[in-house]
């Protein structure tokens, strides 16, 4: 059953230099029990689209979408009040910087129990039991004692576990993990990812994993959606995507994985994601694309059929004869 359905989502920011489109016509679909990974470099609008859906963007943002529904409920016209009933309860989110995402002035226990009180209307004792249970669930030793700790007394990995416990407090149906491992040590990264996938299996919730690390994608996700400069450029199942990427950007990202390197030097993608002041005409990836020609630099690329991973490209790679 479809849990989350977003069609043609765009987000614009008011900046000193004028309007800036951070998300440009993105579609996202997540089913129950699904693990979707959204991949892209920094600045490709991955987090922004999720924050837009949760209603967490600042007032400088303008959000438009043809459809944006969660569990059959339209999120677009929703009042702030009814949206607050959904977020933090049925749909919750964990962030990139666990250390700064916890409020330094309150104990871990206070911050976990707060959601329980507001969404679940539990009494004191029940809240405490559930908080201990949650910390145990995310693998924090000595939970009773840890509840009294302040965030600055914990390591990054520990903080991220607390964030996960907080997000899971009300048994959400959809968990959005926004680069949950980027700020952590490599050894901790794997633990946190394992924890997330285990919890996902146990609870059967939907999981959206935002990352820029193809390695993370390979280990965890079922479906992958590649975003570039605010646009979705490709969407496929994990195994197919790794076997046959259709967008040149995806294939370049994959080629940059150390495990896949065939030469002595790791291939890189030259340049950076276009920002506010250097958006190219035509295909947004064209300035960095090995295959780009004049068509790419002049005309917006079409979206290819699902067989070609919905690639937003004039000349998708790995295209079989007769399909394109």
């Amino acid at each position: 059953m479809t849990l989350l359905n977003i069609r043609n989502l765009s987000v614009d920011f008011d900046t000193a230099g004028g309007q800036f489109r951070a998300v440009d016509g993105v579609d996202i679909t997540v089913n129950e029990g699904d693990i979707l990974s959204i991949v892209g470099e920094s600045g490709s609008g991955k987090s922004v689209s999720m924050l837009a859906m949760m209603g967490l963007l600042p007032w400088t943002a303008t959000i438009t979408a043809d459809e944006m529904s969660f569990d059959g409920v339209d999120l677009r016209g929703m009042t702030a009040k009814s949206r607050r009933k959904v977020i933090g309860r049925d749909m919750s989110m964990i962030f990139q910087e666990p250390m700064s995402s916890l409020n330094p002035c309150f104990t871990v226990g206070f911050q976990i129990k707060e959601s329980l009180r507001i969404h679940m209307k539990m009494d004191r004792a029940a809240r405490h039991r559930r908080a201990v249970e949650l910390l145990d669930l995310v693998g924090i030793p000595d939970p009773e004692k840890r509840l009294k700790a302040f965030p600055h007394q914990m390591s990054g990995g520990m903080s991220q576990r607390v964030m996960i416990a907080m997000a899971l407090a009300c048994k959400p149906r959809l968990l959005i993990a926004d680069e949950p491992t980027t700020a952590l040590d490599v050894t901790i990264q794997a633990q946190i990812l394992d924890l997330l996938t285990d919890l996902q299996k146990e609870t059967g919730m939907g999981l959206i994993l935002i990352t820029h690390d193809m390695g993370v994608v390979a280990e965890t996700a079922q479906r992958v959606q590649v975003q570039y400069a605010g646009q979705k450029v490709e969407e496929q199942e994990v195994r197919k995507l790794f076997a046959e990427p259709h967008h040149p950007y995806t294939s370049a990202l994959l080629a940059a994985l150390p495990e896949r390197a065939t030469e002595r030097h790791l291939p890189t993608i030259p340049g950076v994601v276009p920002g506010q002041y250097d958006r190219p005409e035509g295909c947004l990836f064209s300035p960095r694309c090995r295959f780009a020609n004049d068509t790419c630099r002049k005309t917006d690329p079409p979206v290819q059929p699902p067989e070609l991973g919905l690639a937003r490209c004039h000349y998708p790679v790995n295209a079989k004869e007769g399909v394109a």
């Binding site: 600045g43 609008g45 002041y277």
Partner: peptide
Amino acid sequence: MADVSSSTNTTPTTTVRPGRFKEFWRY
């Protein structure tokens, strides 16, 4: 860092990005 401000900061200065004093004056 996938937020918007970072993407504007990494912009190369070759294009119409306003200069330092001009930006100050504008604000």
